[in-house]
Amino acid sequence: MINKKVANVTEAMQGVKDDMTLMLGGFGLCGIPENAINNLVKLNVKGLTCISNNAGVDDFGLGLLLHKRQIKKMISSYVGENEEFERQMLSGELEVELVPQGTLVERCRAAQSGFPAFFTPAGYGTEVAEGKEIREFNGKMYVLEKAFEADFAFVKAWKGDAAGNLIFKGTARNFNPAMCGSAKITVAEVEELVPVGSLDPNQIHIPGIFIQRIFQGENYEKRIEQLTVRKRA
């Protein structure tokens, strides 16, 4: 067993510097690496390029980094629900690259999988395709999209072990698996760091080979963005 376990978030974040490109898992506020984000706020690293499906809300998730002007550029598919984001974008303080969601995840997965680029039908005929190579396959048009290059990927899982094996829960899986091994260093934080050997190898979603550092996360808030319920009949 190759041990990936680090003592805490401080150790896990070693080497994070200004002007780096970071990948952050999550969809909305679901499955975001809360410990890593809070530590980025504390480290006060600036000029970051963040690849993340969303940009958090004003006072949680990546919204915390936006608030402190730590982010230079966001690469996302959907950035609603965040007033500070909108203000910084419209004023030109924040650079934004909007990417179709399926393309966004595939650009992560391509980096994970050793593909420099891929063709997708998404965005053909729209401003997303401007300046990109277009090719026809079997009578349909496709856009060439490139793999991301990132310094760190921060992912969050439900359970993990010191070998770096990960299991996700519910829809908190989302972008996290495709970001594992897609950056030079992947840091996984888990709700439960369990003893090696206690996870069933059949049930592991991401094998430890994709992970460089893993730590037991703390104080998860797991905020719900849109609470929708029904009454009992």
């Binding site: 909305g28 679901c30 519910g170 797991k222 609470l227 929708t228 319920v229 009454k231 009992r232």
Partner: peptide
Amino acid sequence: PFPYEGEEDADLINAGKQTI
């Protein structure tokens, strides 16, 4: 459908970020 009150799970949402 949406969960019953009190049974919502932060790890179970739809693309509109609603609990399901």
